[in-house]
């Protein structure tokens, strides 16, 4: 599905882009030496350059298929992608709805959906775990340690 080479190149490109962003934003802070000592942008600039150079090397290395992992042709198979998405996509949806639903509703829904929908667990057990999770969060965070978790726009609309 996804070849090792493609993955290596993608990762190196990602780090390279990060390096370029670092270089560009550090130029604003000034590079070199002034009356206030080493300028604020100097070290970030140097790290940015190192990241870019390293990424270029890694791109070349990946494209040529060298290195210790060269014998591994396929990095991620189609089934593996499906399994990864099965974990990550619901997690991302969970995070995305937190501002609207708040941590408690979102986590209850997330746990229930992940457990009950793929029929991995009996619905009743999923319901119990789904209800227990936000309750435990509420007791430990809100009550014991006075950390207020987000209640969400929906709760705010109802005046909580």
């Amino acid at each position: 599905m996804i070849s090792r080479r493609a993955l290596e190149i993608a990762a190196a490109a990602l780090t390279g882009i990060f390096g370029v962003v670092v270089i560009i934003s550090s130029i604003d802070n000034g590079i070199g030496w002034s009356s206030a000592g080493v300028d604020a942008g100097t070290f970030p600039f140097l790290t940015g350059v190192i990241i870019v150079l390293g990424s270029l090397y890694n791109v070349a290395h990946g494209a040529l298929g060298r290195g210790t992992l060269a014998n591994v042709r396929i990095a991620i198979t189609a089934t593996e992608v499906r399994r990864l998405a099965g974990l990550f996509v619901p997690a991302a949806i969970f995070v995305a709805v937190i501002p609207l639903l708040g941590m408690y509703l979102a986590s209850a829904g997330y746990v229930f959906a992940v457990l009950a929908l793929p029929r991995r667990q009996p619905v009743l057990r999923a319901l119990v775990i789904g209800a227990a999770t936000p309750l435990a969060l509420y007791i430990v965070f809100e009550r014991m340690f006075q950390v207020s978790l987000p209640h969400g726009a929906l709760a705010a609309a109802f005046g909580f």
């Binding site: 974990l87 619901p90 997690a91 969970f94 995070v95 937190i98 941590m103 986590s107 997330y110 746990v111 992940v114 457990l115 793929p118 991995r120 667990q121 775990i129 999770t133 969060l137 965070f141 950390v147 978790l149 987000p150």
Partner: peptide
């Protein structure tokens, strides 16, 4: 299957707090 979503929640709440 049960512990995975719980770990996700722990990480989310942890990062938030």
């Amino acid at each position: 299957a049960v512990i995975a979503p719980l770990i996700v929640i722990i990480c989310v709440v942890g990062a938030y707090s």
